[in-house]
Amino acid sequence: MRSSLFNFALPEELIAQKPAKTREASALLVFDRKSGKRRFEKFSAIGKYFKKGDVLVLNDTKVIPARLRANRKSGGKVEIFVLRQCGEHEQNLWECLIKPLKKVKIGETLIIKDPLQCEIAEKTEGRAIVRFSGEVKDILASHGKIPFPPYIHEAKQDPSRYQTVFAKNEGAVAAPTAGLHFTKKILSALQKKGVEILFITLHTGFGTFTPLRGNTIEEHRMDEEFFTIPEQTARGVNRAIAEKRRVFACGTTVARTLESNARKKNGVMTALHGSGLTSMYIRPPYKFKIVKALITNFHTPLSSLIVLVSAFAGRKNIMECYAEAVKRRLRFFSFGDAMLIL
Rank of each mutant, 00 (worst) to 15 (best):
V55Q: 01
F199N: 14
I152R: 08
P176G: 10
R131P: 05
F226A: 07
V237P: 00
G144T: 05
L305T: 06
A313Q: 03
K42R: 15
T201L: 06
F312P: 02
F248S: 03
V237Q: 00
K105C: 00
A255D: 03
Y281Q: 11
V173A: 02
I46R: 10
H89P: 00
P11A: 07
I295H: 06
I217E: 06
R329P: 05
F81W: 11
R39S: 15
K73Q: 09
G134L: 01
F81D: 03
P147H: 04
R127Y: 11
G276E: 10
A70G: 06
V78L: 06
K184N: 14
P100Y: 10
A293K: 03
R329Y: 04
E90Y: 12
K192R: 14
V291T: 15
F298D: 07
G53C: 03
T22L: 12
T228H: 12
N266Y: 08
P176L: 03
S334T: 15
E88V: 04
L116N: 11
I282K: 07
F31I: 06
H273R: 02
I120R: 05
S35C: 05
A325Q: 01
V307K: 05
P211Y: 01
E196K: 15
E324F: 00
L68M: 11
D223M: 08
A293P: 03
H273S: 15
K289F: 00
F148S: 06
R67F: 12
Y151F: 14
V195R: 03
T257A: 08
Y162N: 12
P159I: 07
Y281D: 09
T300N: 01
R72T: 02
D138F: 04
E259D: 05
A325K: 00
V326F: 00
A262R: 07
D337M: 13
I120F: 07
A323R: 14
K168G: 04
A167W: 08
V237L: 00
K168Q: 13
A311L: 09
F209T: 00
L68P: 10
L140C: 11
G53H: 02
L68F: 11
M319K: 15
L308M: 13
T183C: 11
K185D: 14
C321N: 13
G267I: 04
G134R: 08
G205D: 01
R283C: 01
E196R: 15
K34T: 02
A66E: 09
P11H: 10
R23Q: 12
A255F: 02
F40E: 14
I229F: 08
I318Q: 06
R315N: 06
F81E: 04
L5H: 13
E243F: 06
A9Y: 03
L93R: 15
E324R: 07
L190F: 01
T257K: 08
S304Q: 05
D60M: 08
L187T: 02
L140A: 10
E13T: 11
S142F: 01
F206M: 02
L198Q: 10
L277A: 13
R256C: 07
E154N: 09
I282P: 11
S310I: 11
A255T: 14
L97D: 09
L83K: 04
L5A: 12
N266Q: 12
